[in-house]
Write a protein that binds this DNA or RNA. Structure first.
Lengths: 207, 207
DNA sequence: GTCTATATCCAGATAGAC
DNA sequence: GTCTATCTGGATATAGAC
């Protein structure tokens, strides 16, 4: 198995494993040993590739946060009518989170633990919140002026849409218990939800 | 400082401290040492009172989960029209979480880590999800029959209302960054939100 | 580059004095 | 009941052989 230089296969295996374990357990709950096993190697090799748990975590977190934000930022800040944006946000959010259900809670948990991290990352990535919100506010204003939607605060509306998409995944165990769903039924509920959210929001916005 | 029997003051101080630290850091991130310092005592005394970290955590979690659910269950399962229920849920949720912002993320994180915990606790507490949902479904059906609201799935509606209330707190650091709010402005946004949510939901439900 | 073995550190838990 | 000192286990990190 001896290779000569840094093995990309191994490096990728580690990063994949780290992503999985950190996302599921959080930084404090993650064990280097579990990451190693998941990657099919041993702890020593982990440290050979990424020196420390902190360093590895930083890489993973940055990557995951980007996943979570970048697509979204593009939609919110991009062109299109308000209705287009809302539909695209719902589509994007639900698909993204469905394929990695514990992503949001991971991001939020680590972010509450260390809020400046986000600010630092945002600066580095060159993302521009104020441009993005400006575009969104503009779309809202346009729709209101055209009388296709009732007057509403753009900030609150954006929070509403995100809430409706993300929360069900965060609260999954609770919802399953309260509504007595098994995994299959929960999945079915989520599938209906894209349409449900768009309908719920657009219906609320009718003038 | 020597007392003779179990000191209620100390016990309470410990539980308060544990509640605070566990809720903020999660089980894995919490340190017995931090709890001790927060309670103004030392680690040894912690163990004297509550034997182990696990035991202490179980107490705290059970208490917190009850806080989160019980009031809510009463509202959802209780009497009143659909609109009454919705208003009461929003009122209750926002007030509760405002006074302890990292409660939801704590519950959800620990619950994903160990989903059966909730089921066990529910059984012990005698809570009855199916009765509760039945009452809620009934309220929805009644409102639909009376034509005061459009037809809608009761389960999805309940998720919608909870989402709108809880998510903003979970996503606080993100919202602050994206919408460029400081703490004061965030607080103002939340204050407006009770009214905003009720309006948003009722407006969506119009037939 | 990958492994086994080991060092180091830290956090939970106990012993024993007061 | 409360403290200081200590034990023990587990987890991160390094050394060194292959």
């Amino acid at each position: 198995m001896a290779k000569e230089k840094r093995d990309n296969g191994t490096e990728k295996a580690i990063l994949d494993a780290a992503r999985k374990v950190f996302t599921h357990r959080g930084f404090a709950g993650a064990r280097m040993d579990e990451i190693a096993r998941e990657a099919g190697i041993n702890r020593a090799l982990l440290h050979y590739y990424f020196r420390s748990k902190d360093k590895l975590f930083d890489l993973v977190f940055a990557q995951r946060a980007r996943e979570f934000f970048l697509g979204l930022a593009g939609i919110i800040g991009g062109p299109g009518s308000l209705e287009d944006k809302i539909k695209a946000i719902v589509e994007h959010d639900i698909d993204m989170i469905r394929s990695q259900p514990d992503l949001p809670i991971f991001i939020m948990q680590e972010l509450t633990q260390n809020p400046d991290r986000l600010v630092r990352m945002a600066v580095e990535s060159g993302a521009n919140p104020s441009m993005m919100m400006k575009a969104f506010r503009h779309a809202v204003k346009e729709a209101v002026d055209k009388k296709v939607v009732r007057p509403i605060d753009a900030g609150q509306l954006l929070i509403n849409v995100m809430s409706l998409c993300v929360y069900p995944f965060i609260a999954k165990p609770m919802i399953k218990a309260v509504q007595e769903l098994d995994d299959k039924q929960f999945e079915k509920m989520i599938l209906k939800r894209k349409q449900e959210i768009v309908e719920f929001v657009m219906s609320s916005l009718k003038p």
